[in-house]
Simulated scan of single mutants.
Amino acid sequence: MERNESTSRPVALVTGATRGIGRSIALAFAQKGYDLAFCYRSNQAEAVTLMADIERAGARVLSHQLDVSDEAAVTTFFGRLEQQYGRLDVLVNNAGQTRDGLLVSMEKTDMEAVLATNVVGTMLFCREAVKLMLPARSGSIVNLSSVSAVRANKGQTNYAASKGAVEALTRALAVEVGKKGIRVNAVAPGVIKTEMTGELLDNFEKQLKQRLLARKFGEPSDIAEAVLFLARPENHYITGQVLTVDGGLVLG
């Protein structure tokens, strides 16, 4: 699932891109003139559909199926990316996992699975992206956090811990690579309408909206716009920051 052709266009890599927020982000970059690389965990049919949509937007595309916490698979993917494009301008770490439950009864496997995807996977992709960005002394990394890092709900100890780690990672890596021309920021979404949150929003729509100053749920496109903002080279003076896009949930 690739097109072997070098490019002088900017290149963006989006993890977990086949649905919801990740899909919206990938298509937004394609529409802004970027060539794309993306990865996904399991649904090949959705990956094929996304690939076609990206190509219709006029962009080249490379896709790869993997577990983001699998170091060997991540290294292989970056090898393919470098061979096809020879550059990487933007990395968006969107892939994430939830396994909610009260800590008192939570299995260790549920702790490890969430941390592996949300933290270890993000670190692996950041590491490999920095290797590609250093020679150019430019690049932008945008990690997806969550308002749960600062305002968690019951049953989210593993998820909240993972997103708190993502925000700490964002700041620490910004310090490491800032003088090399690489910026690292994060976006923290609030309540966004996706397939993953559909049942929750249906069951608790009234209660949730009462906590939102905007009085409505966000769309995946709202997060995509925030990611685009942080990724733009014109915003070179922004690094090590977490941009909360939550309709005022934290303040509500």
Results as ranks from 00 to 15, higher is better:
E2S: 11
N4F: 10
N4G: 01
E5R: 14
P10I: 06
V11A: 02
V11N: 05
L13K: 09
V14H: 08
V14C: 02
T18R: 11
G20D: 08
I21P: 03
I21F: 04
S24K: 12
A28W: 03
G33T: 12
Y34K: 14
Y34C: 04
R41V: 13
R41K: 14
V48M: 10
V48K: 15
T49S: 13
L50H: 10
I54R: 01
I54H: 03
A57R: 08
A59R: 14
R60Y: 07
S63E: 13
S63G: 02
V68L: 00
S69D: 04
D70Y: 02
E71C: 00
A72Y: 00
V74Y: 00
T75D: 08
T75H: 09
F77L: 03
L81Y: 03
Y85W: 13
V92T: 11
V92M: 03
Q97R: 15
T98P: 02
T98C: 04
L103V: 15
L103H: 14
T109A: 12
D110F: 10
T117E: 04
T117P: 04
N118K: 10
N118H: 03
T122W: 01
T122A: 06
L124P: 00
V130T: 12
V130Q: 03
K131W: 00
L132Y: 00
L134T: 13
P135G: 02
R137P: 01
S140C: 09
I141T: 03
V142F: 00
N143D: 03
L144E: 00
S146T: 04
S148E: 03
V150I: 11
N158S: 10
A160I: 05
A161S: 13
K163H: 05
L169E: 09
R171Q: 11
V175N: 11
E176T: 13
V177P: 11
I192H: 09
I192D: 08
G198H: 15
L200E: 13
L201H: 14
E205D: 14
K209W: 06
R211W: 08
A214M: 13
R215N: 11
F217V: 12
P220Y: 05
D222G: 05
A224R: 11
V227L: 02
V227C: 01
R232W: 06
P233Y: 04
I238F: 11
G240V: 12
Q241R: 15
V245E: 06
L249H: 15
V250L: 09
V250D: 03
V250G: 04
